[in-house]
Amino acid sequence: MQTLEMNVNGSDVRLEIHPDETLAEVLRDRLGLIGTKIACGEGECGACTVLIDGVAVTSCITPAMKAHGRRVTTIEGLSRDTELHVIQQAFVDSTASQCGYCTPGFIMATKALLDANPNPTREDIMHGISGNLCRCTGYYQIVDAVALAAKRLAEEGRK
């Protein structure tokens, strides 16, 4: 067992873990942050996407120890209390979720995309979410949601 210290969604945590546990396992099984989904287990679908120091990674193939001393943001870290984050609200308003299992991953990929590029073209959006698979929606409403979120964030920024 090894000590892992990290900041998750603004709170410092200290855990004893197996060195080969993945970040997804630690978030889900040890911290109960079930919003991070495991769908492929090999970094090929994006459902487990979280941010480490703002960078989007697939937590299912990220050794948890890599988060040692870092800031981790999960889907649970986006909304404040009951209020949805602008991106989450845009997914609601665009009906961008069906079964919803891929949704947290798409939202976290969107967060990273819009943080880096607040004014993306539709093509930029498609490339930004091309690491995430969805089996339900055909992606169009997801692309719409990202575009809507970008627009609203820009409006918010201007206020």
């Binding site: 991070t36 649970e76 986006l78 919803g100 947290p104």
Partner: peptide, 12 residues
Amino acid sequence: ARLDIAAKVKGT
């Protein structure tokens, strides 16, 4: 709006 969608986007 879908009834289940707010919980899905929050990951809850």
